[in-house]
């Protein structure tokens, strides 16, 4: 491929990835809308106020935001060609993402064991699906990040790898933004409104 062809291909892929992120955004919007409709359909079961613990959610949020910061540093390092810094920053992102996922699974597990599963009410169905879809995306991001780090170790920071890392970081920041909305709409509004 000539340089020109390569540049054209890269701008295509990046633009395509942005469009994909927008479709994912609409997917989450549908789940948010559903949650908003079913929020008070507790079927005599617990409400958000009964279930959510703000300091726990704050911990999750802090960890995820920090992971996004680390991811940003990782991309800067990649652009500067600093392979070691890049790998360690993405390593940090990976670890924080894993920790976030662990906390989320812990919360789900606790709710399930307390008898407040997705079968309990429309509200809990919507809660588990919305937050769980975000968690599934985080899982996909972690798998992607793992394979990318392996590639960087093997091949170094090639143009292709930097392109892929850029898309990965877009994905990760996008999930961060979705989480901010989940934090606000599900947890804060659940406790306050």
């Amino acid at each position: 491929m000539s340089t020109q062809e390569r540049q054209a291909a890269e701008s295509k892929t990046l633009f395509g990835f942005w469009v994909y992120l927008m479709t994912d955004c609409v997917l989450f919007a549908s789940l948010f809308a559903t949650f908003a409709v079913l929020r008070f359909n507790t079927n005599g079961g617990p409400t958000g106020e009964d279930l959510f613990n703000l300091s726990f959610v704050f911990k999750e949020t802090f960890i995820l935001l920090t992971s996004s910061f680390a991811c940003g540093l990782g991309i800067l390092a990649a652009r500067q060609g600093n392979k070691r810094l890049c790998l360690s920053m993405f390593g940090l992102t990976f670890a924080l993402g894993l920790a976030f996922l662990g906390l989320e699974l812990h919360e789900f597990n606790k709710l399930y064991n307390d008898g407040d599963s997705w079968r309990r009410s429309g509200f809990l169905s919507a809660f588990f699906t919305l937050v769980g879809t975000h968690g599934a995306h985080i899982t996909a991001g972690l798998i992607w990040m793992g394979t990318m780090m392996l590639r960087v170790v093997q091949q170094g920071l090639t143009t292709n790898n930097i392109k892929r890392l850029t898309m990965l970081s877009l994905f990760w920041h996008f999930l961060d933004i979705v989480w901010i909305f989940i934090f606000t709409v599900v947890y804060l509004m659940g406790l306050v409104l």
Binding site: L38, W118, G122, S125, A126, T129
Partner: peptide
């Protein structure tokens, strides 16, 4: 999810809509 995991998004009962 309603049909396989017993959720209540669109069921007539249990808080579905």
């Amino acid at each position: 999810l309603d049909r396989t995991l017993g959720m209540h998004f669109f069921t007539a009962l249990n808080g579905g809509n």
